[in-house]
């Protein structure tokens, strides 16, 4: 463990003061084992109290601190600075409106989630105990339930940037998660919703979402399976 000097360039935007976002450079001394979040805390607590960012769990499960560092979408809490060296460039996620500094408006992101009916739909009577679901059936959706809704994927998606109506990878992954759940009866509904140019068909398998996903979920692959399911269903 050693202290090192780093140079941190942050895209700042203070509503009411700044007409548009501007870069600000901070020179700070931090431990070499620091994470991006440690660096932001150091700046916020010791240098400039006006810096705003989101964070909560520190253990890459809450999804608050997704942001762009040196051009990559990462969770600030789990990303060590040594991954990028001593020069950091930190920006808010792309494709969302900036509220202040690194804080973006995620309401549209969560609104999209709502549109795919993100809950188990069961038309049969509930069993007394649990539904029987084999480990193989669970395997189909297992990885997709890891999604922490951090929005790193949607912010990395070139199909999402020009088109705010596109459902985006996170909502579509959620659709996959329920369509492929052996307990769910709502597939027809959901497939109809995603079967749209603003739904699953705007995904051009660019793989950016997959690369950005901090949970390493194979999003593009699951969306491809969803597409096939839509086609199967409409034939």
């Amino acid at each position: 463990m050693a202290m090192i000097d780093i140079r941190v360039k942050i895209l700042r935007y203070q509503p009411g003061q700044d007409a548009k976002p501007r870069w600000q450079v901070f020179a700070v001394k931090v431990e070499d084992e620091s994470t991006i979040l440690d660096v932001l805390n150091e700046i916020h607590w010791q240098h400039d109290g006006t810096l705003a960012y989101r964070r909560s769990c520190r253990s890459s499960i809450c999804g608050s601190c997704a942001m762009k560092v040196n051009g990559r979408n990462v969770l600030a809490c789990e990303t060590p600075i040594h991954r990028f060296g001593t020069k950091l460039k930190i920006e808010p996620l792309s494709g969302f409106e900036i509220i202040k500094d690194l804080v973006v408006d995620l309401d549209p992101f969560f609104e999209k989630l709502k549109r795919i009916k993100p809950y188990l739909i069961v038309d049969r009577p509930m069993p007394d105990k649990e539904f029987v679901q084999s480990p193989q059936q669970l395997e189909q959706i297992g990885e997709s339930t890891l999604c922490i809704l951090c929005a790193a994927c949607s912010a990395a998606c070139p199909s999402s940037w020009p088109n705010s109506d596109y459902l985006g990878p996170a909502a579509l992954l959620k659709a996959y998660r329920f369509v492929f759940d052996s307990r769910d009866d709502g597939a027809d509904d959901r497939l109809e919703i995603v079967n749209d140019k603003n739904g699953v068909w705007r995904c051009h398998t660019i793989f950016n979402c997959m690369e950005a996903c901090p949970k390493k979920i194979k999003i593009t692959e699951y969306l491809s399976r969803l597409k096939l399911k839509v086609v199967e269903n409409s034939l």
Partner: peptide, 18 residues
């Protein structure tokens, strides 16, 4: 049917398949 997002008139599934 949940239509409260801007769905387009054509689904796109045929174009994708073709």
């Amino acid at each position: 049917m949940n239509k409260d997002f801007k769905q387009t008139s054509r689904s796109g599934s045929l174009a994708w398949l073709l």
